[in-house]
Design a protein around this nucleic acid. Structure first.
Lengths: 187, 187
DNA sequence: CCCCGATGCGTACGCTCGTCCGCATGAACT
DNA sequence: AGTTCATGCGGACGAGCGTACGCATCGGGG
């Protein structure tokens, strides 16, 4: 019976790497509630830091959002490139694509939601548009390991459509159908 | 020199069909500034009606947004179906699709923006999700006039991807490339 | 050992938002 | 003509927002 009730102390002085942690938390919040609801306060609450900490580390909310999405792209794009690099030929590349779509992406809602959130946010905010374009470009580069540039771009568009379609539809396409669609580009 | 300055009178008593006009204006505002910025006040300003008029005609902002998107789908879906109905065979259907993508859609930013806005809004709001799914279903039905259901669904996804891709990319695909992509589904 | 600048903390300000409510008005029906 | 009621109007309220700012704290260089 030392101190009074004391509503949960927070002795977190000197917290190195807090900036990094804030970016990661921001990404989680965006995936949870959408980019427009990912406010300073929501992110601060999720990261268990005071509100002022956010404006200290990031000069604006926009900058924080951009940092979060950039981090996401920097994590996802290399993974995809690795997938393409590992494929031996066109056949394996297509099959890797099918696996990526049915497993990695559509399996976990998180990446799917983040992709759509980025699409929509980019439509209105120039800073995020650059991030989106960077992502598209890197995807195409990865595909060009096995496909000519024209086919790569078409495949990229198809993948984008499949992702969106699956995110919004109640009865998503099964693996067989996705395989069928992807293999149309086996030229 | 009759009356004082009088800051722009608004004598609009008894305005039948105002509800309709509000829906149309809401759609314009959404296309202009995005669904998250399409607030009661923004729409009221654009339609030149007092703020209270909106809550009188629509029980919530969500309902107004849903009404706007529903109206858009009810205008766009029949147009697309007409396009498919007019095509004589698979070849003409594919070519009509190419024309639709390069002309109607990508030509005017408006429909493109509205499509993306609906995608993103639907991801978070169940009421809008129903509208999106209705749209997808009607698109597929139209395509099934010429393609088997499996192909129709794949084509639908491709179209969605092409739309998104074109909306967000600075150097959109040209007509030839779109034609090439669409014709992969000429089975 | 001391100080000082980087970092953390809490709060306040000004703004916009969705929604609500009391009153005014005039078309339609008796 | 009189009454009623759907419709229009404008202001108000409370909540949540982004951002700014003054003070507290502490690690590391002198």
């Amino acid at each position: 019976m030392s101190t009074a009730p004391a509503p949960a102390r927070r002795p977190r002085r000197h917290d190195p790497g807090r900036r990094e942690r804030l970016v990661a938390t921001a990404l989680d919040v965006i995936a949870d509630v959408g980019v427009t609801a990912a406010t300073h306060r929501a992110i601060a609450r999720a990261a268990d830091v005071p509100l002022g900490s956010l404006t200290y580390h990031f000069s604006s909310l926009d900058e924080l959002h951009a940092a979060a999405f950039t981090r996401h792209v920097d994590e996802v794009a290399p993974r995809f490139d690795e997938l393409m690099r590992a494929a031996a030929g066109v056949g394996e590349a297509l099959e890797a694509l099918v696996g990526h779509l049915t497993g990695d992406l559509l399996g976990s809602d998180r990446d799917l939601v983040l992709a759509v959130e980025l699409y929509v946010a980019a439509a209105r905010r120039p800073a995020l548009r650059a991030v989106t374009q960077d992502w598209m470009q890197r995807s195409r580069r990865s595909l060009e390991r096995h496909f000519d540039p024209v086919t790569a771009r078409e495949l990229d568009a198809l993948v984008e459509g499949l992702v969106l379609h699956s995110a919004l539809s109640t009865d998503p396409m099964d693996a067989g159908q996705i395989r069928s669609a992807v293999h149309r580009f086996a030229r």
